[in-house]
Design a protein around this nucleic acid. Structure first.
Lengths: 239, 239
DNA sequence: GACTATTTGTACGTATGTATG
DNA sequence: CCATACATACGTACAAATAGT
């Protein structure tokens, strides 16, 4: 019989709640606070056992919980890696994967319009510079005609715009939604040429000018092409 | 021996998946499709073992995964109950609980403005009727001076507005954010009298008229009071 | 209030597959 | 190719908590 946890223990954490839940919380905190950055490898099981003062089974259980949440990703014989900073992205992915693509796009549109408005209200210099850089990278990719890098630059531009709003929670929601949308669009849209930049320059100009309404309108215009494409595809499927 | 679930699996991309993941997915499906409604008690472990043809530990692991996702809630000696239809709400809650309340409010504002715009674009008759009913219920509660029912009616109004957008994903995101905000506001705001309805009637009128811009503006005005309150509280804490 | 049945929680053991070295 | 270690799944026994009698 292994010593029950109820007796005297080194107690790295207080005891009122279940031990496994506390470990889960602790690991989640480490990831969310950036101590274990996304992509990094977390300490081995024995080290966690030693550090937290709990049994190996408890550690394993906690890791598995975070694995299901999409935060950690164990690789056999290698180690356990950080997959995402929070479970929000994975949860959105699971939820939105079964949703209608048009509804997903609408949510993305709502978030991005709001982000553009907030960014115009802030006019953060550094964020604006990054946004301009992203725009120019995309225009360069368009000139080169490189489809892949153009798409990557497009995604990066939108991400930068949302980041310019200065609201990490908003950005995380957007990322989660965007991943789903990119995924569904990527399944069949390799032939579609988004060669023309859809109006990103207008977005940047409006944000830089502090024109919240204009920024929203410009973002809305950006969505039109994607929406039309989704509608056309839905019509095809219907026929 | 009950038939195991492990046999041939024509998955889209041949990915050798674990039985426990299949069970997790199956249970998630049952919940999401409403076969196990929120609040109901799911079959006991032995019955699930019999029904799914897997061992008890496997069932337990799956249940625990959904428990951590915030979907199921096991109670010793009683049973396991359905807590939420998807894990999105819980994930948002975990993520947003540590975020700045002003940022959470901003996200809510973004979602609600977008929902109001979409609702004005749809002008769904049934949804509009429900929205009007919610508004009148809130005004009635305001006349009665019943603080608790007024708050409940306020939450219900916002929820109804978002539902009127006709986008379940958007509504679910909003609910998750709203729960967090209500929670943080409820911690100390019992004395604050939100006696005056903040302009909900204008929102309803704009939505009914199909005036998307007006609906957005009206919603934005609604937020002002809450934002001012949060700012004031932040200033208090700062001092 | 106490007893009993039911149900989940925990612990341990074992067999089998699978990746690593 | 083999050996080791680990992950997975199943089964069993008992503990703990709750509901109902």
């Amino acid at each position: 019989m292994p010593e029950p946890v109820t007796s005297s223990r080194p107690s790295p954490i207080s005891r009122p709640r279940k031990v496994s839940e506390l470990v889960v919380e602790h690991l989640t905190d480490l990831v969310e606070r950036g101590e274990w950055p996304v992509g990094s490898r977390i300490p081995t099981e024995p080290e966690l056992v030693d550090r937290l003062g709990v049994g190996r089974n408890t550690v394993r259980e906690a890791v598995r919980a975070l694995e299901h949440a999409g935060i950690l990703e164990p690789r056999r014989g290698d180690g356990t890696y950080v997959r995402a900073a929070s479970g929000l992205d994975a949860a959105i992915g699971r939820r939105a994967r079964t949703a209608d693509a048009l509804q997903v796009l609408e949510v993305r549109s709502v978030l991005e319009r709001g982000a553009a408005r907030a960014a115009a209200g802030r006019r953060d210099v550094a964020a604006l510079a990054a946004l301009r850089a992203a725009l120019e990278a995309q225009e360069a990719a368009a000139r080169d005609g490189d489809e892949d890098s153009f798409r990557a630059a497009d995604i990066a531009f939108h991400a930068e715009l949302v980041r310019a709003a200065g609201n990490p929670l908003l950005a995380e929601l957007y990322d989660g939604i965007d991943h789903v949308l990119v995924r569904t669009l990527a399944t069949d849209a390799h032939g579609r040429h988004h060669r023309d930049v859809p109006g990103h320059r207008e977005v940047v100009d409006a944000v830089a000018a502090g024109d919240a309404e204009g920024a929203e309108r410009a973002v809305e215009a950006t969505m039109a092409a994607v929406r039309a494409y989704l509608l056309a595809r839905a019509a095809e499927v219907d026929a």
